[in-house]
Amino acid sequence: MARSPALRLVGRRLGAAVIVLWGVTLLTFIVMSTLPNDTAQTMLGLHATPAQVAALNKALGLNQPFWVRYWRWLVQALHGNLGTTLEGQSVNHELAIHLPVTLELLAYALVISVALAVVVAVLAARRPNGIADRISLSVSMIGLSASPLVVGIILVIVFAVQVGWFPVQSNGLGGGLGSFFVQGTLPAASLGFPLFAIYTRLLRADLVEQMQREDYIVTARAKGLSPWRVLIRHALRNSMFTLITVIGLNLGTLVSAAAIIEVLFSVPGVGSDLLTAIGNHDSALIEGIVFVFALITVAGNLAADLLYAVLDPRIRHGSTNS
C-alpha cells in the first residue's frame, strides 16, 4: 500500500464534503428561483415603472436563464466573492460583521454544555441507577425535548424579568469580556441546555458501558485504582472521543437553532441576518449565509470523521478482518 489508509480516507471524505457543499449551493439556487423574483422592484421602490424594473433586471443579469445565473454565481463564489446584497453591501462584508457574533455564541454554548455534561455524566455513571443518575436522566430527558425557544423564554422570565441578572435583549456581544458574559449568557444557555442533554446522555451511556464491559477497566479496578480515578482517568478519556464526534455531527442543527435564539434575544448574528434576508427576498445574502451554514455543518461532520480516523487505531492501522 503506497498511501496510508488514513490519508486515503481524508481524500475520500474531503471529496464527498465538496460534493455536498456544491449540492447545497445548487439547492439554494433552486429554492431561491421559486421565490417571487422582485429584487429589482425592491431595489427601485414601489414607484418604479415596469421599464425601469426590466432595465435593472437586465443590468443585474436577473433575466438570464437559471443555469447561467448559477454558473456566474459559482465562479464568483470560487473566487471568494459572494455577491452583493439588496442594500448594495457586499455579502462578504455582511458576513464579516455578523458571523463572528454567531460563532462566539456557538462557542460559548458549546463550552457551557460540554463542561456541564462532563461533570453530570461522570457523577451519573459512578453509580448507574443511583440518585444522581436518575436525576440526570430526567433532566436530560427534558433538555432533549426542549426547544431552544422554550428554554430561552423560561430563562428570560426567570433570570431577566424576575431576578433581573441579565438583560431581556442583548444587543450585540461586543464591548469586552464582562459585557460578553452579561449579554451572551442567556442566549448561550438557551442553546446549550438541549445540547447539554444530548451530550450527557451519550457520555453517560458510553461511560457506563465502558465501566461494565471493557477489560482494561476491569483490569484497572483489579489493580486497586479507586473507582473515581478509573472513571475519570481511563473511561472519560476514551468517551470524550465519542463526545467530540457527536459535537461535530451536531453542528448543523446547532446553527439553525442559533437563528431562532438570535431573533429571540436580538443578537445581531448571521441567524437573525438570514431571517431578515428571507423576509426581503435578498437572494445573494441568503445564498451567502446558507453557504456558510452548510460549510459549518460539513466541516463539523468532516472533522468528526477525520478525528475518528486519526485517533481510532483500528482505522489507523487499516485492520483487515474479513
Binding site: V20, L35, S256, H281
Partner: peptide, 22 residues
C-alpha cells in the same frame, strides 16, 4: 445518500422558511 446529505447539510429552517415564504 449524497442527495440526503445535501438535504441534511442544508439548514432545515432556511428551507422551511423559504418554502413558507415562497
Amino acid at each position: 445518500s449524497r442527495i440526503l446529505d445535501v438535504l441534511l447539510a442544508f439548514p432545515a429552517l432556511v428551507l422551511a422558511l423559504a418554502i413558507a415564504e415562497g
